[in-house]
């Protein structure tokens, strides 16, 4: 459903920076793909191209058969720091999408309630973002994305700013939500554990210029939970990826 074909991205400037070089990647409907790599490897850039936030320099990028030109609710984005509107309540943040799409209230109210229930925030609909913890804010970010019924969820290090315990809770929540909804997810992270736990497939990236060096299919059975983090199979995947990343690092 998502096709990157020879996609390059160069940021113009005094010294042009090539962030991505000839990336090929395809993601099936309902597939969970993690982009794993060190900071500066272009993984966020790759996500921003798919989101339509930035134009590509070369190559083709299609979503559901259409060339990606601009952002849209079919590719919902969950930002690293949630990026909620601080002047709107939880409810108004989550219904922002349907409202600017001029949907009728009857159309979105039930689904908004359902999504808030799914992320466990139905009691906080009138709270302002400043009154919520970091993890709760990110749950609002997820509800805001899901309420639009997107075909793909693009997540840019969504749990990177959270403490370890909250991160585990959020990973579990995401597993549950994804196993319920079954939409495609592109998940950017630099955390190997997180990538192995969540993804069907991990694309390991290296920097300067950013490219995908290896794709690893994670065959751990579904449904998964954070209990998987301590199984030997999990550790085996982790060891393999660490070796891969060391190798990628060594060649540069």
């Amino acid at each position: 459903m998502i096709e990157f074909q020879g996609v390059s991205k160069t940021f113009a400037g005094r010294t042009a920076v090539q962030a991505l070089a000839e990336v090929d990647l395809s993601i099936r409907d309902g597939e969970f793909v993690a982009l794993l790599g060190p900071s500066g490897c272009g993984k966020s850039t790759l996500l921003n191209l798919l989101a339509g936030f930035e134009p590509l320099s070369e190559g083709h990028l299609t979503f559901a058969g259409q060339e990606v030109r601009r952002p849209g609710p079919d590719r919902a984005v969950v930002f690293q720091e949630a990026s909620l509107f601080p002047w709107l309540t939880v409810w108004d943040n989550v219904t922002f999408g349907p409202r600017v799409q001029r949907r009728s209230r009857a159309e979105y109210e039930e689904r908004t309630r359902e999504m808030l229930r799914l992320v466990g925030l139905e009691a906080f609909r009138d709270a302002l973002p400043a009154q919520l913890s970091g993890g709760m804010r990110q749950r609002v970010g997820i509800a805001r994305a899901l309420v639009m019924n997107p075909r793909a969820l693009l997540m840019d290090e969504p749990f990177g700013a959270l403490d370890a315990q909250t991160r585990l809770a959020m990973q579990q929540l995401l597993l549950d939500v994804w196993q319920t909804l079954g939409i495609a997810v592109l998940f950017v992270t630099h955390d190997i554990d997180e990538a192995v736990l969540l993804a069907d497939r991990i694309c390991v990236m290296s920097a300067r210029p950013g490219r995908i060096t290896r794709e690893i299919q994670v065959e751990l059975p579904r449904p998964r939970s954070i209990d998987n983090l301590i199984t030997p199979e999990f550790t085996a995947y982790k060891a393999m990826i660490m070796a891969e990343m060391k190798l990628a690092h060594g060649t540069h």
């Binding site: 849209g72 984005v77 930002f79 909620l84 509107f85 922002f96 600017v100 805001r144 639009m148």
Partner: peptide
């Protein structure tokens, strides 16, 4: 105005007038 607020609004399907009145003005 934070860039990601604008991006979030665009991603949710906001038109330029929505972005001006619902994001840029309150921010």
């Amino acid at each position: 105005v934070e860039k990601n607020w604008i991006r979030a609004a665009l991603m949710m399907g906001a038109r330029p007038s929505d972005i001006l009145l619902r994001v840029v003005l309150p921010a």
